[in-house]
């Protein structure tokens, strides 16, 4: 059994992003594994540890530096990993889907593909679905519970606050993990040492065939989204503050 986990190397959620003109941004900030992908990887490791003996392979599309996220995946427990190496930071979702599909297909037959429900950088929210069509597999995204019994996968998918769909799928299938699915493990120092011996196979993007000359969705530019300035600060008696706030919200802001 082979489980492929698609991960992404993204700026830390605590990092400030500084656009540098065009599509460039300051990439010297701290990078991490996309938080949602951690839930996907953890789930894959649990499936392996539950006695299925599955092989867990982490796959990413990114620049050379994305190997550090693959090292994290290997330290968490992935058996080996694949980097589809690109020159640019941004790759459009259709192309990313195609590259993941090609890289995985060349490697083996997936019994399960797990990934995060979305990346926290470009937030395209479509890779699981693109993979589903390319591999001809059913897809469920925003998954908060997972179980697999005799080739059938049952998941709960959150659709609203406190409302969940219970979905049953045949395998192989694609699952997009959400927060709450599990508690991802933190690798220990020995885990990190062991990870250094595990394989990171690097495939240059060009080896997987040419992308279309124009991306399906083309990033033209990144602009800073400035925060609003310091607001009107009220203080003193709570009842008075609240009365003043309601007046401001009704008369000045017009939102009540």
């Amino acid at each position: 059994m082979k489980i492929y986990v698609c991960v992404k190397h993204v700026p830390d959620t605590a990092a400030n992003i500084r656009p540098l003109g065009g599509t460039a941004f300051d990439e010297t900030v701290k990078f991490i594994m996309n938080p949602y992908d951690e839930y996907a990887l953890e789930q894959a490791l649990r499936i392996r540890e539950s006695g299925s003996g599955a092989e867990v392979i982490a796959v990413t599309v990114g620049k050379e530096v994305a190997t550090s996220t693959l090292r994290t995946a290997l330290a968490m427990g992935a058996d080996r990993s694949i980097l589809v190496k690109t020159d640019a930071y941004f790759t459009d979702s259709v192309e990313t889907g195609r590259l993941l599909y090609r890289a995985i297909s060349l490697d083996g037959f997936p019994d399960l593909i797990l990934t995060g429900r979305q990346s926290v950088d470009t937030e395209g929210m479509q890779i699981p679905y693109r993979l589903g069509v390319l591999f001809d597999m059913p897809v469920a995204v925003n998954v908060v519970t997972f179980s697999m019994v005799e080739g059938r996968v049952t998941v709960e998918r959150e659709i609203e606050a406190d409302v969940r769909e219970v979905i049953e799928m045949t395998t192989p299938c694609v699952v997009g993990a959400a927060k709450g699915l599990n508690q991802p493990r933190c690798p220990t120092l020995p885990d990190m040492m062991k990870a250094k011996k595990k394989e990171i196979r690097v495939i240059p993007q060009a080896d997987l065939g040419f992308p279309p000359p124009i991306p399906t969705v083309e990033l033209l530019g990144l602009q800073a989204a400035p925060d609003r300035g310091r607001g009107t600060i009220l203080e003193g008696d709570p009842e008075k503050m609240v009365r003043e706030l309601l007046r401001l919200l009704r008369e000045e802001a017009g939102v009540l």
Binding site: E123, T216, E218, L219
Partner: peptide
């Protein structure tokens, strides 16, 4: 044929062109 959406959550805004 362009849209704007946030990248890096609300930290930046991206301008994207849809081709096809």
């Amino acid at each position: 044929g362009t849209v704007r959406k946030s990248h890096f959550s609300g930290k930046t805004t991206a301008t994207l062109r849809l081709n096809g």
